[in-house]
Design a protein around this nucleic acid. Structure first.
Lengths: 114, 114
DNA sequence: TTTATACAATACCTTTTGGTATCATGTCAA
DNA sequence: TTGACATGATACCAAAAGGTATTGTATAAA
């Protein structure tokens, strides 16, 4: 699927910051570039990668390219993370019935998840 | 914080596969290596990066190192993603009151998020 | 029709990344 | 003690990543 592209896109701090900006309002490449201290070409590359990860969509309007935050990528990551919940739920169930496992199990981290 | 290390750790497909294996049972480095076709040294590097991202914890037992899935990293990512929910909620509210925006807004993707 | 603007695309550079190979260290068992 | 085993650590390599500079193209405006 595209989950690899999405995780790759999220791995860079500049790209995550771009997503933060786009969450407040959609922007052209130029407007995004104003908010950083790198060249427009570098920003464009980041936007390409964000688009590949389905984290943004691009809408051409005349000579401008409007970049808009898109939910698909992030919800795919949410789903991926959700896969692990069942295992933590299992562990929690084990805690209830088997008290002797209490020492080995990290209660704090499990609680933080719920 | 450590969110950069966590996102970085999740960006590699081999590391995500390691997490999948560890979700079923904790393993030594050797046991993880058996499940891949790369060297033990490469696996060790991946495990180091997963530990930096607080996605696993390591427990020394004699001459063995037990690698265990840890919730902290993934819940940090969940929280990060959660930040965006408010903006999608806002957009959804706007949809309810302003029907003329219907064309511009991608309903499908918003729905998928809820 | 010019001219300025917003972007696309490519070549090039440096650093990081994922991998191997190799050697050193600590621990279990005979 | 000695050998086998599980791991740690380092040097090295090719490819990918993040960046700049430069050149080209399409569109808005004078």
């Amino acid at each position: 699927m595209h989950i690899q592209e999405t995780f790759r896109a999220l791995a860079d701090p500049t790209r995550r910051e771009i997503l933060m900006h786009l969450s407040r309002q959609e922007m052209t490449i130029g407007e995004v570039t104003e908010r950083f201290e790198i060249t427009r070409a570098a920003v464009k590359k980041h936007l390409n990668i964000l688009e590949e990860g389905q984290l943004i969509s691009v809408h051409v309007q005349g000579r401008e390219r409007i970049n808009r935050l898109e939910a698909q990528g992030l919800s795919a990551v949410s789903d991926w993370i959700g896969y692990f919940d069942q295992f933590w739920d299992q562990r929690l169930g084990a805690l209830k019935t088997a008290v002797e496992d209490a020492e080995k199990t990290k209660r704090k981290s499990i609680k933080g998840r719920i």
